[in-house]
Nucleic acid binder design. Sequence first.
RNA 1: GGGGCCGUAGCUCAAUUGGUUAGAGUACCAGACUGUCGAUCUGGAUGUUGCGGGUUCGAGUCCCGUCGGCCUCGCCA
Length: 489
Amino acid sequence: MYADTVEILNRSETPPFEIADENNVALELRLKHRYLDLRRPVMQKRLTFRHKICQTVREYLDRLNFVDVETPVLTKSTPEGARDYLVPSRINLGKFYALPQSPQLFKQILMVAGYDRYFQIVRCFRDEDLRAQRQPEFTQMDMEMSFVDENDIIQVIEGLMATIFEKVVGKKVTIPFPRITYKEAMASYGCDAPDLRFDMKIKDVSDIVRASNFKVFLDTINTGGQVRGINAVGCGNYSRKDIDDLTAFVGQFGAKGLAWFKVEESGLTSSITKFFPADVLEKLQQHMHAKKGDLLLFVADKTRVVNQSLAQLRLHLGHKNKIIDTTIFNFSWVVDFPLFDYNEDLKRYEALHHPFTSPHPDDLPILEGKPLEVKARAYDLVLNGVELGGGSIRIHTPETQKRVFRLLGIDDESAYLKFGFLLDALKYGAPPHGGIALGVDRMVTLLLQLDDIREVIAFPKTQKATCLMTNAPSEVDPQQLKELGIRLA
RNA sequence: GGGGCCGUAGCUCAAUUGGUUAGAGUACCAGACUGUCGAUCUGGAUGUUGCGGGUUCGAGUCCCGUCGGCCUCGCCA
C-alpha cells in the first residue's frame, strides 16, 4: 500500500499486552482489557465461528418450520435444581423475580398454546460455583416439539449437527449417532457422559474376588459395595511412585485405595497376591483381558465412589498415555435414564433430569412402588465425553405430573403454589411433547477443540463470578436499596 | 464450605540453602541506520517483589492473615 496522505483518526496508548494471536498473557489481564483481547485475530475468528453456528441453527430450524419465541428473563423462582439468581421487585416490595435456569416451563406452555415447533437461542442463569466449563450465565439452543417421541427429537438434532459440521466445521459426521443406555454407560465408563474415543472399559470383578482372602475387598462386598477396575494397557512398567500418584488421584473422588496387579509372563504380581488363590488371579487376568505388560487397577467401595474414581482414572490414563484421538468428534446418545435417584442427605427422591420428564409408559404401574426402577423418556447428547445437552419427552397430563410431584415430596398444595400454571395448562388438552436444550458455549468450545468456554464468550466472568472489565457485581446507591426495601446485613 | 497452584519491570519469566546493589527477553523512550513488512545497531528509563503483620543480624524466598487469578471436590433438576 502506498499512502499519499495519512490522517490520524485516533491515538492509542501503548497497550498493556501485545495484540497478537500468540501472546500468552494472563487471563486476568485479558479479561480486564477484553476490548483489546477481542481485537486479536484468533478471538475474532472464534466469535465469528460462534455466530456462524448460531446462524446455521436458525436457518436449519426455520427451514423445519420452527418458530423463535422469546420467553421472559424476569420470571418465577422454582424449587429443585440450581440456585436461582434473584431480582428484587420495586413495585412489589419483598417479592423477587428469578432469572431463568432454562425456559423449560415456558416452552411447554407454548406447546399447549399450539406453537408446536419452538426454538430459541437463549441465555440461562444458575447461581452455582464456576468451572472452566461452567459460567453463571450461559447460552442454550433450546427447542420443543409437539406430537413427537424420542426418535423425532433425536433425528432433528442429528440433522442439525450434521448440517453444522457440513456448513461450519467443514467435516463429515456420521448419523445416526450410536446410542448407549445409562446402565451400560455407568457400568462400563462410570459416568453418564462417556468418552467413547477410547476403550479401556470398567469391569466388575466383585464375583471373582469374593473367593479371595483380601479383607478390603471382602468387607466392601459384604457391606453392599463392589470391586471394579480397569486394565491400563501397557502400563505394567509403572513405578511405585506412578501408582502412588494414581492412588492419590482417585483419592480426590473418595476412593480409599487403589489395588493393583502387574501382568507378567508368569501371571499377576502385586504386594497383595498372597491374599488371592492362583485360580482367582487367573480369572482376574482373563476377565480383564490382560496381557503381559498391562497394569490392572481396582477400586473397592460403594457404587458411587467406584464409578466416579474409575471414570476419572480412565480419562486421566487416556490423556496421560495419549490413547485418545483428539482429532475426532465422537457423538453418542445416552438413553434410558432412570427417572429418579435417591438423595441420601435429604432422604427423598430427586428427579435425575427434571420433574417434568415423562416416565416410560410401561413403568407407570410401578411409579409409586419401585420409583428407582422407573425409566425416564430422557436422552443426553454427548460429544467426546462432554454432555452437550439433554432433553426428554415431557409429562402432558396433570394426573401424571401430580404423581411425580408427590414422589418428589411436593404435595398437591405446594405443587399448585409453585407450578399451578403448568398443572392448569395441562388440563386443556395439552399435546404430547418433548424437546432438548444444547449448550452453545460448550458446543462451540468443543468444535474449536478448546477446553475453556471463556474462549468463546465475549465477556465472561471470573471464577468468583465477577466481570473484571466492568467490575460487576458492585455496590449500589443506598437510595436504590431503599426503593427495593432491602437492608444489608 | 474444603483441597491445591499462582501473584517479581507495561508484558512473559529468572533470582542457588534465607545473604551484598532483584536480572533477562520483549515492550517503551532517544539517537543512528534503513524500500518498510517480528528490521538492525547504540544508548536510556522502568520495581512499595499484590497488600498487612510476624520470625530473623538479614525475607522475593520461611510463617500467619488478607486480596486477586486459575484448577478441583462439594454444588451444578
